[in-house]
Design a binder for these strands. Structure first.
Lengths: 137, 137
DNA sequence: CAGTATCCACTTCGATACTG
DNA sequence: CAGTATCGAAGTGGATACTG
């Protein structure tokens, strides 16, 4: 048994994952894990943004996906959407306090990804080399 | 502008998200965000597990998805897979040091989810109440 | 500008059946 | 026990065209 396995058992299961299905954690994780949410959150972490500003700031996102993403974030209470009834319309997005509190965790995840980016890439290359024609993805 | 928006701008973009597409962070996030990975990681955080043990410990996971999930985690270097050539076969899974380092972040995410679980649920109910027949999901 | 509406491609997931 | 193989349902994302 490895020493690196510190005792996180109890604290890792604060809601009884072993008994209950998933206690809604997946709810949040799938939001964080979807293709654009984190990028939108990161972009909004810099401050208020308009729809087009967001789209320009996030490389490759389509109008449709930006709409869907900000709507979901708004629904979850992570982002506020403010409409100014001007012509043409003007809409701004801003992180809520809740959304902002998530940015800290997102940042840590981003840092972790960055720190181990190459290690993971090498692990994958290694795996693929030793397991040719093995379709995992 | 809200006081809650502390200055995380610079540190949130350690790899130039604004210039580069996504610098591989999404790679990790989608892994964390997929339906079963985190549950498997949590389960393995308690120690070594065999295939069936994992399946029994994770409510609702199918054989196929467990296989796919542990394979991907193995490929990423987060989990080691050890085969004992007994009859019947015996295979154990264990977090690597890298995988274990991720558990800390996963735990924080889980805690965050738990802390704000009800807030989010209320935000959603609210949103849905004020936006009837609005298909977001 | 800030969206909606449609359609389609692709992926993910679950269920079931079978195997060394 | 620990998988693999196959299939189909559902979800997710992209491209394009249109609107107040």
């Amino acid at each position: 048994m490895s020493d690196s396995h510190i005792q996180v058992t109890a604290s890792l299961d604060p809601c009884g994952l072993d008994e209950h299905p998933d206690c809604g954690i997946r709810d949040v994780l799938t939001r964080v894990g979807d293709k654009w949410s984190v990028l939108v959150i990161v972009e909004l972490a810099s401050g208020v943004r308009r729809f087009r500003e967001l789209q320009r700031g996030i490389d490759g996102i389509s109008q449709r996906m930006l709409t869907l993403t900000v709507r979901r974030l708004e629904r979850d209470g992570l982002v506020t959407r403010t409409v100014f009834p001007t012509v043409p319309a003007q809409v701004t997005y801003e992180l809520t306090a809740l959304g902002n509190s998530l940015t800290h965790l997102v940042k840590q995840l981003a840092d972790w990804s960055l720190d181990h980016r190459e290690t993971i890439a090498r692990a994958r290359a290694d795996y693929d080399a030793h397991h040719p024609d093995h379709e995992i993805r």
